[in-house]
């Protein structure tokens, strides 16, 4: 299976994603420059973390107009998997691939830390190898990670099981203390209506080896293999 990793000017987790896919997952990966119009036959698209276009205007606001985003949107519309991590989540929201938006952290500080997230729905393309309610450890590193959406959208996401990850304590409690950025309802990751576009602020690609402190991100990538290969 081929993973296409889009590099925007200012992306900085594209190498991490590449390494996770090739070294840990043992699958093929390719970098796709944001000005290209060719997904190079990729089965899965990763919008990586970073600070595309220096976060000018708003995080992800300019990147969504990069030429490659037309192909990424078409790929998503056709049901192809798109994984937006951190800045990739912000870009996916700005591009309308996911509802809502990511705003400045409520405490106004950049947060670089390991967080715990609870798996809210394990019946997706990205989470089928996790147990329902399982607690995962992954790093976050962002200044604009506070997920917001109108109440009717939040209710829709909840009703349809599209809140995939929530910030949680070690025992699974959804608390304000576990929320690193003030996200509404502790939301850390959501999926689109079709179940093929996942956006999340934590970094699964940086949690793929015990050496990095956690391997909990590996099964997210493996889950894609299970579903897409099936």
């Amino acid at each position: 299976m081929k993973f296409g990793i889009v590099t925007f000017p200012g992306s900085n987790c594209d190498y991490d994603a590449f390494q996770a896919v090739t070294d840990i997952l043992g699958e093929e990966a390719t970098y796709i420059w944001h000005k290209d119009h060719d997904l190079q036959g990729s089965d899965v698209i990763i919008l990586p973390g970073g600070f595309s276009y220096g976060d000018y205007l708003r995080a992800g606001a300019i990147a969504r107009f990069s030429p490659i985003m037309q192909e990424v949107a078409a790929h998503a519309k056709a049901g192809g998997p798109v994984l937006g991590i951190c800045n990739g989540f912000q870009i996916a929201c700005e591009a309308g691939l996911l509802p809502g938006a990511l705003m400045r952290n409520s405490h106004l500080q950049f947060v670089s830390a390991e967080v715990r997230i609870r798996v809210e729905n394990s019946d997706t393309m990205y989470t089928n190898l996790y147990e329902p309610g399982e607690i995962l450890r992954m790093p976050v590193a962002h200044g604009d990670g506070r997920y917001v959406a109108p109440v009717d959208i939040l209710e829709e996401l909840e009703a349809e099981g599209r809140v995939i990850f929530r910030y949680a304590d070690a025992d699974g409690t959804i608390s304000a203390g576990a929320n690193p950025n003030g996200s509404e309802r502790n939301i850390a990751g959501i999926i689109n209506e079709g179940g093929n576009v996942l956006g999340m602020m934590p970094h699964p690609e940086r949690a793929c080896s015990p050496l990095l402190g956690s391997s909990d991100g590996v099964r997210l990538l493996e889950s894609i293999l299970v579903r897409v290969a099936a």
Partner: peptide, 8 residues
Amino acid sequence: KLLANPVT
């Protein structure tokens, strides 16, 4: 279309 985010 760009200058403001309609959600926020």
